[in-house]
Design a protein around this nucleic acid. Sequence first.
DNA 1: TACTACCTTAGAACAATTCTATTATAATAT
DNA 2: ATATTATAATAGAATTGTTCTAAGGTAGTA
Lengths: 136, 136
Amino acid sequence: MEKIIHRYKGKGFKLTPQRLAILKFLEGNNEHPTADEIYTGLKNDYPTLSVATVYNTIETLRDRGEIAEVTIDPERKHFDPNTTPHHHIICMECKRIADIFEDYTSEIALPQEVVEEFSVAGNHIDFYGVCRECRG
Amino acid sequence: MEKIIHRYKGKGFKLTPQRLAILKFLEGNNEHPTADEIYTGLKNDYPTLSVATVYNTIETLRDRGEIAEVTIDPERKHFDPNTTPHHHIICMECKRIADIFEDYTSEIALPQEVVEEFSVAGNHIDFYGVCRECRG
DNA sequence: TACTACCTTAGAACAATTCTATTATAATAT
DNA sequence: ATATTATAATAGAATTGTTCTAAGGTAGTA
Ligand SMILES: [Mn+2]
Ligand SMILES: [Mn+2]
Ligand SMILES: [Zn+2]
Ligand SMILES: [Zn+2]
């Protein structure tokens, strides 16, 4: 909380109550919530919060590189406050997304012709599986 | 073409002209088109084709595992007639998607705690870069 | 206080996708 | 061949996720 305030007290980004609430909601949250889940999770405490502000804020944060957009679920976008490069596994049943903190970059060297065609900036691995709970 | 007919002449899937056109459009297509690109690419030759039929068909094909849905582009879904496991790289400028035919599965072993929690079924790597053309 | 820049809000607009009701077609049985 | 049935195609409506717009609101500065 102190850390959040300190972190975002730079110029060009006003720390409004709404933004602070969204940042607090995301801080340390490893559930990879959707925009609607952020909104639903906050609207009781912030009844005047609008869904547009949630989208505005997560878009701003995403553009500033403060949060990451997770594309593993074709149904909707998920957001991740952890921007250190890492990978994800999704349960194909319940759509729960978990983190994988391994750096495989040196293991996944690209073939010559791809390296010649593209300047490669990064990678992200989607793993697919079924979680323990969904296996019963 | 002969191959397509042969392949899909199984029961439970009628090979109608519209479906055949969509299959022909996708066959060997490594551009990873969107639903709209499929529709746009066919509507001159099939003026009565509806966008709903494109969606119906690609959904059916996807559910049957005949085509794959590519999630690398957060903006829209792309489709891929190549269902052999492979990876993709997207140009962050022009959004062009290219194939990477390498199997990294044995290089990207998951940590113990993830394997205990999930039964892993597969993986897909998104690479991000900038293509030669976009670098000028 | 006045000014400026930025933010929030509600709701409209939008684009991608899915659903619905109707009609058409193909496969099967008679 | 004809009738029956099952499935597909169509147009357009509806839905969903997301972005935009216009109207205030608020914080920081002069
Ligand atoms: Mn994560
Ligand atoms: Mn591909
Ligand atoms: Zn699960
Ligand atoms: Zn490019």
